[in-house]
């Protein structure tokens, strides 16, 4: 499972192109042998190669066009559909067509934001607090745990690892969780939803950190200990800075997951004051059932932060998701 991880590192793009050209070069190599034996063959070989290339070029162009075309239709039109309809008036949007709006109703966005006493703003604030809070706690706790679980191999860490792995597969039990939260008197609090998001994302995050610790040589720590470094300073000053690349992955993956989370806030953070950004959409589904322009404007408001994130960190996100998934 983890084997692909390391092999992948050397430049991904060049690998792809070399696989395509490799067949061409090897056939060239075999044809070179033939050329040596009879000079007469040279011309025909060359000719054949040329025509082959031309044919390949045409095929490629066709593949490019078809590929890009269908990707645009299948993966872009839904977003375009939402965007144009979010800018129409109520009647126009309810036709649900892909036509451009007759007049651009930018006011829709303002109206959505104002709805229910600026619910969207509250929700954005809540979502941001939950996301930032949970990610920060996750980075601190999971990096420490991953560090120890990789470096120290004994009964305790083996057990800890086994328990953590359960969390990768099993969904959280809803009502017993509420029961625990009520017992602790923290139900419906910002603190409880942050801790829940931390708990739910802990297994995956520890796994990422533990996997990355594998690649960090022990020598640094050994010489640090000889110089009299304390256990805590060893981690904060030497190990943690080395974990930077995987910390970036952890931040992006968890931020996307937690920001997009719908189920956990629905159960564990109920109430209008506690709305999160995904829940506004759910609330508006009833309220705006006959004005799709408003509903779609809210969808766009939700999608835009992710789009910005994607445009900036495109490569990092894709790599991080693969690393996470392949490890999982």
């Amino acid at each position: 499972m983890s084997t692909t991880e390391n092999n992948r590192k050397p430049n991904v793009e060049t690998n792809a192109t070399s696989s395509a050209t490799s067949s061409a070069t090897s056939s060239a190599a075999s044809s070179a042998k033939a050329n040596a034996t009879s000079a007469a063959n040279i011309k025909t070989e060359k000719f054949r190669k040329k025509s082959k290339l031309k044919q390949g070029g045409l095929k490629l162009l066709l593949a490019d066009i078809i590929g890009l075309g269908s990707a645009l239709i299948i993966f872009v039109i839904p977003f375009l559909f939402i965007l144009v309809n979010s800018l129409k008036d109520r009647r126009g949007a309810n036709k649900m067509s892909l036509a451009m709006p007759e007049t651009f109703e930018w006011g829709n966005y303002l109206e959505v934001i104002k709805t229910n006493n600026y619910m969207v703003i509250t929700a954005f604030k809540n979502s941001a607090m939950i996301t930032v809070g949970a990610v920060v706690v996750l980075i601190i706790t999971a990096s420490m745990a991953g560090y120890i679980m990789q470096r120290r191999r004994d009964k305790v860490t083996t057990w800890a690892n086994a328990i953590i792995m359960i969390g990768l597969m099993v969904p959280p039990a809803i009502l017993p969780t509420i029961w625990v939260l009520q017992f602790l008197h923290i139900y419906k609090s910002m603190f409880s939803i942050i801790m829940l998001e931390v708990a739910i994302n802990t297994p995956f995050t520890i796994m990422l950190y533990r996997g990355f610790m594998n690649t960090i040589p022990l020598e640094l720590e050994e010489s640090g200990f000889i110089d009299g470094c304390s256990k805590i300073r060893m981690f904060t000053n030497i190990v943690f800075p080395l974990l930077k690349p995987v910390t970036a992955t952890v931040v992006i993956l968890n931020a996307v997951t937690i920001f997009n989370d719908f189920v956990n806030p629905l159960y564990f953070f109920p109430g209008n004051k506690n709305a999160t950004i995904q829940l506004t959409l759910y609330n508006f589904m009833g309220q705006f059932s006959s004005s799709y322009n408003m509903l779609f404007a809210d969808v766009i408001i939700i999608v835009v932060p992710m789009l910005i994130l994607f445009l900036i960190f495109n490569k990092r996100i894709v790599e991080g998701m693969v690393a996470g998934a392949v490890k999982g």
């Binding site: 328990i163 969390g167 829940l196 802990t202 297994p203």
Partner: peptide
């Protein structure tokens, strides 16, 4: 955190 928020509810 994991024990209180995840394992206890799951087991119970």
């Amino acid at each position: 955190i994991f024990f209180v928020m995840f394992i206890v509810p799951t087991v119970s």
